[in-house]
């Protein structure tokens, strides 16, 4: 491939070109094999320091990034805190500048506030990788979803992908929409009207409130996690009503294509988004997503670390 990677940071999929996305996927493909070896370690990032800077609780994404970095021989530091404690004392920028002063190479940040990784990217020199910012983007999740789809379907262009759930608050939905539409998929978003952000069709997606319509003809169904703590707020319907209307069960699966892929970014609220028989059923690629997450994150770490070296 002619394209080379020139970005210090990975902040979103919105600004990536089709070629850049393809490059990450190809790179991930070559890294996937490392995790299948008995000795799962390569020296690629030896001597580099990676900081995992997590302002929101996370098990899956943090572990996935940590393993990705460790399998490439990087040194890892974990910082787990929450955004509200920082607002009272040191600012995000000050904390970041202190970490920068300790001469680290890559900062992976998750934050409950949309745009927080951008604040770091413009003020400090280490590479910044967005591991999820508010309701904005979660680029590595988008990439690993696309990687998993591609493994099964061989291509993305022309596929019908339905994303179902709380679209308004979902960074996974936004990164999937950007990545999939750039690669030529036809994306449908489906969820309760209260959780559908305004003018989302301008991102080039179809909007429906009818889950049957979203299931029929879909090559891929990506079920978003709903945040149960939002229940009781005006925007969220009662959980049982949500589950009946938008949850995926064996009954609704009768409308699905025979070779449909069922995805979920995890962690699953069993019985709400997916019944166990669907989550664990033959169409489910949910655990493959988790496996692929490491390969995709290794690829991203590798690509951004290369840019930094060139700058030095």
């Amino acid at each position: 491939m002619a394209v080379s990677w020139k970005r210090k940071d990975l902040l979103d999929l919105e600004s990536l070109s089709t070629e850049e996305i393809e490059l990450i996927l190809q790179t991930a493909d070559s890294f996937k094999e490392i995790s299948q070896r008995p000795i799962k370690k390569v020296p690629t990032l030896r001597g580099q320091t990676v900081v995992l800077f997590f302002f929101e609780p996370s098990t899956r994404t943090r572990t996935s990034f940590e393993l990705a970095a460790k399998r490439m021989s990087a040194d890892i530091v974990n910082i787990q805190t929450n955004a509200s404690s920082l607002t009272k004392g040191e600012t995000l920028k000050d904390t970041a500048k202190n970490i920068e002063a300790m001469k680290v190479d890559i900062i992976i940040i998750r934050h409950s506030s949309s745009g927080a990784p951008y604040l770091l990217a413009e003020s400090i020199s280490p590479s910044i990788i967005n591991a999820g910012d508010g309701s904005h983007e979660h680029p590595t999740q988008g990439l690993l979803d696309i990687f998993t789809i591609k493994e099964h379907k061989k291509k993305i262009s022309g596929l019908n992908v339905s994303i179902i759930g709380d679209i308004a608050h979902s960074r996974v939905a936004r990164s999937n929409i950007w990545g999939l539409t750039k690669l030529g998929a036809k994306v449908t978003v489906c969820g309760p009207a209260t959780l559908m952000p305004p003018e989302i069709e301008r991102l080039g997606v179809k909007v429906t409130y009818d889950v049957k319509e979203a299931i029929e003809g879909a090559d891929v169904i990506n079920m978003l996690r709903i945040q149960i703590e939002r229940q009781g707020q005006s925007l969220f319907p009662p959980i049982r009503d949500y589950s009946m209307k938008f949850g995926l069960d064996a009954e609704k699966m009768r409308y699905a294509k025979k070779d449909v892929l069922i995805m979920h970014p995890g962690p699953i609220n069993r019985g709400i988004e997916l019944t166990p028989e669907v989550a664990d059923g033959p169409y489910s690629v949910i655990l493959e997503q988790v496996t692929n997450g490491i390969a995709v994150r290794m690829a991203v770490l590798y690509l951004v670390s290369g840019v930094k070296k060139r700058i030095e």
Partner: peptide, 13 residues
Amino acid sequence: NEGFVSTKLGLKG
């Protein structure tokens, strides 16, 4: 403002 840009940025409108 609630609208296309808030949808894109994932900011509460």
